[in-house]
Structure formats: structure tokens, C-alpha cells
Amino acid sequence: MTKELDYSATLTGASFLLYELKQVLKLKRQGLSDDEIKKKVIEDNVFEYKFTSSLKRIVPSVIRRANALDDQLQEWILDNPLEEGKIINLYAIMKTDRLFFEFMNEVIREKLEANNNLLEKKDLNVFFISKAEQDEKMAKWTELTVNKLKQVYIKLLFEAGLLKNKKTGELYRLLFDENLKRHISKNGDMVYLKAMGE
């Protein structure tokens, strides 16, 4: 559960990364260890980045997300339709980033439950201000870091399919496959499904 994690700003350098996650899962499927995956991704530029400098920063996040998924979910990301992969990726991000999970749970879930399909700038502002008041480490983050995180959160919601339009802030309900819902629920992770508006 995300509760043991500290608040972190690592998402500023690692946003949705679904393509990258799929590449890592393919290497896992071949039996490579985390260290071997890290080495191969960097040496062979597996993500096909123009500049490989960012690989070192991104790979640990992607591997963490891959490890947050059980074998079944890993398989579904690789073999099932893209929309399902996006939902599983969003779930992995929440499982590995406490602050983002709390944002999903406290802002997005509450909006969708209230049938309020509008995410406004003030919602993000209020969330980050209240978290900074509760956490000393977060209170020391620069305005630049916080603004970057807000941008990343919007981008994540958009790429996951939860945000219809970045400018208007119109939210959209995700369509969950029944097997996926059952599986996540059986894993004891209903809280993540609820955070995604299910």
C-alpha cells in the first residue's frame, strides 16, 4: 500500500511512460533481473530516446512500476487492448507514488462520486497547499517543483483517458474491463479502483 511511501517529486521526471513500461515488461518476460534490465535499457537505448541522458533518471521509476504489478497485470498490459494498459499503468503509478495516489483519491474520486466532471486549477492548488501544510519535506519544495508536478498530474490524467480536455478540465469516466476490476479487487486494492472513479 502507498501509505509507507514518503511524498516525492519523482513524477516531475517520469510521467505516463506506458511505452517504456511495456519495454521493461518484455525484458522481465525474458527473465532479466532489475539490474540487467536497467543496464540493457541504458546501453541499448531500448526506449529509443533521442538523448540517452534521461534514461538513467527514468528507468528506476519504470522498473518500480513494473514490480508493483503481479504477473497477470503484467501480461494484460502486454497482450490486452491499449485502453486497459492505460488503466493498469495508472494503477501502477498510484501504487508507487503516494502523493499522486492521494491526489487521485482525494480530488478525482470525490469529484467523480459527486458527478462533478470539472477539474479546475484551484483543485490542484488547494490539494498541494494542504499537503505542504501537513508535510515538512513537501513544504520545502520550490514553487517550480510544485508547478511542474501540477503539469505532470494533468498530463497523466489526460494520457490515462480521465481528462477529456487539458484546457477545459473536463473529466471523463474510465471504462473498466470486468476481469481487470475483479483482479484488482481480489488483490485487496479496491481503494485504487475507487480512486480512478470506479
Rank of each mutant, 00 (worst) to 15 (best):
Y7K: 10
G13P: 01
A14V: 11
A14K: 05
S15P: 07
F16E: 04
L17K: 13
L18T: 03
E20C: 01
E20K: 01
L25I: 06
K26P: 00
L27N: 02
Q30M: 14
Q30A: 14
L32H: 12
D34H: 09
D35Q: 09
E36S: 13
K38Q: 15
K38R: 13
K39N: 14
K50Q: 15
T52V: 15
T52L: 07
S53W: 01
I58R: 11
A66H: 00
L69D: 04
L69N: 01
L69Y: 04
D71E: 12
L73D: 06
Q74G: 15
E75T: 09
D79Y: 10
P81G: 11
P81K: 15
K86A: 09
A92M: 05
I93Y: 04
F100H: 06
F103T: 01
I108A: 03
R109D: 02
K111Y: 13
L112Q: 02
N116A: 08
E120T: 12
N125A: 10
A132S: 13
E136I: 09
M138V: 08
A139R: 13
E143A: 13
K148F: 09
Q151P: 05
Y153C: 01
I154P: 02
A160C: 15
L162T: 08
K167D: 03
L171W: 10
L174R: 11
K181Q: 00
R182M: 13
I184A: 08
I184R: 14
K186C: 04
K186E: 12
